[in-house]
Design a protein around this nucleic acid. Structure first.
Ligand SMILES: [Mn+2]
Ligand SMILES: [Mn+2]
Ligand SMILES: [Mn+2]
Ligand SMILES: [Mn+2]
Lengths: 138, 138
DNA sequence: ACCCTAATGTAGCCCATGCTACATTCGATG
DNA sequence: CATCGAATGTAGCATGGGCTACATTAGGGT
């Protein structure tokens, strides 16, 4: 499958990105909580995301199925190596996306809010261009 | 409900944007097909989106339920005034988003591909900043 | 030690968004 | 004008991602 620049192909990429965006947000958040408070509890994850705890627990189940996290009954959630890797990438991308938006002139809160969704649709190539843009500006 | 800049609120906005992105893509595409070929047929919509026709037909049903389109058995799909309005807004936003990406230095095909997902997360405030950015550049 | 509260887990529901398989209808062409 | 292929529609299934309601467990304070 070489890259086929058809509209259908682009929509397909957008659909894939949409389906992974939740997992990305979860691992990023879990890494943040682990770094800040030492552990990531389901309730805190749910609170931060603004969802109920069963929703968070179900999503954590999907994380585990995807090999991104582990957890045992009544204990916190822990990222696997793959999960940590993804969290690191996702966090760096998040930062760069928000920084670019702000550099362009987007109000801070809009940049933070929109960036939360935009980040998941930023490909490697686009990310490289963003980095270049930030480097080459006055 | 004034805007509350909590992380939960931002995630909520991102979830809402994700849930409307499909409808936006459909109305935009239907408007394109109507303009280009005079009518928007379910099969052509499905082909362009890269989904099967039952998927497209079901989505068209949701468009109708949302008051964005009309259709009668074995005839094409037509946008309502609300649908046309949304299509216009969406198309303009799509263009501006891709243009900004390209202006920043993102390769054309990446801008087109990523823009297909990014556009749905660009708020009014961010869009205004994008317009300003394009206006004020060398 | 006990008990109460908060955290966790489970069950069961809903809707969106995808699919395959099959049924129906339209319309172009012989 | 009969037929056949393409378009349309329907049925039924799966998964993701949200919810409420209820059950269970862990652990800190008395
Ligand atoms: Mn996000
Ligand atoms: Mn993020
Ligand atoms: Mn799109
Ligand atoms: Mn678009």
């Amino acid at each position: 499958m070489p890259e086929e620049p058809t509209q259908a192909h682009r929509f397909d990429l957008a659909r894939k990105a949409r389906s992974t965006s939740l997992l990305e947000d979860y691992v990023e958040l879990i890494a943040d909580l682990a770094a800040a408070t030492g552990e990531a509890r389901a309730t805190d994850i749910a609170k931060r995301l603004g969802v109920t705890h069963p929703t968070a627990i179900k999503a954590i189940g999907r994380l585990k199925a995807a090999g991104l996290a582990t957890s045992r009954p009544y204990r916190g959630v822990f990222l696997t190596d793959a999960g940590l890797e993804l969290a690191k990438k996702t966090k760096a991308r998040h930062r760069l996306v928000v920084d670019v938006l702000i550099a362009i002139g987007v109000p801070t809160e809009s940049a933070e809010a929109d960036g939360e969704g935009i980040e998941h649709h930023v490909s490697e190539a686009t990310l490289r261009a963003f980095a270049r843009f930030m480097r080459n500006r006055a």
